[in-house]
Amino acid sequence: MKAMQARVRKLLEENKIDGFIGLKMEHGHPAPFMFSRENLGEMETLVVGDVRYPLNKALLKVSGQYPDLTFGVMVRGCDERGITELLKWNQLHRDRVIPVGVACSSELAQLCECYKPYPSDWVVGEKTEGIAKSKRLQKIEGMNQKERLSYWLNQFNKCIKCYGCRDVCPMCFCEVCSLEDRNFILTGKLPPENPTFHLSRAVHMVGRCIDCGLCEEACPSNIPVRTLYKKINEIVKEYFDYRTGESSEGKSPLNLLGEVTLELSDVNK
């Protein structure tokens, strides 16, 4: 914590950044907040813990308002992947973001089943090994078709259409959302069209989902959407050899025509 506070203070004092988006302990709750040179006195309240907020989403809002300023942001492994992708999707400018890393605790890494629970560089925490294969994915893959169908139909039927998964998602930056297209998703109907609503969002997560899991944490109905998007990441890796957010090279497979690497026999298995 002290190391993080010292690093942020230094960055601000040396004018490397104009603001730092992190968490501030207030009223006993950690809350998203921007530390700047005007409120250096509050640096003591900067905290790092296992509570996570979509700080990249806050960064998009602030940097959208001040495109010429440079901002620091607290990143975990997932947030760093997010920044890498947001740069590729032209939502941030490379010279305008300075990430300050946090390595996740082993408990959090286990809970998330994160394959890389640490950023490339960090000032707080210790590196813990990632989890190569998600157990929740294995559990569903072990079911037969009928079990999978009834599992997901039941899960999707719990949806109260709060759009929380989308609103919290740091990778959802579109100005127009197809899930709000009334020709596509009927309005005034609960649960929303099952499975169109959830599968459409899943398709949109191709090359975007950084597996931060905020969607599932935000879901008031506890739908295991994260498992669905973990599967999407696996599909993208298997078919296109693309790991979302891992490298600044290459673009998301559905964001780029590229060359064709698949054959009909790969698709109609």
């Binding site: 559905l254 698949l262 698709v267």
Partner: peptide, 27 residues
Amino acid sequence: YMTIKRVAVLKELLRFTGFQEERLYLD
């Protein structure tokens, strides 16, 4: 090129969620 990528992803997704991906066919 885009079609085959999209259909490949969608079919895998339908398989995972139990919605019988054989009902979708690309040729």
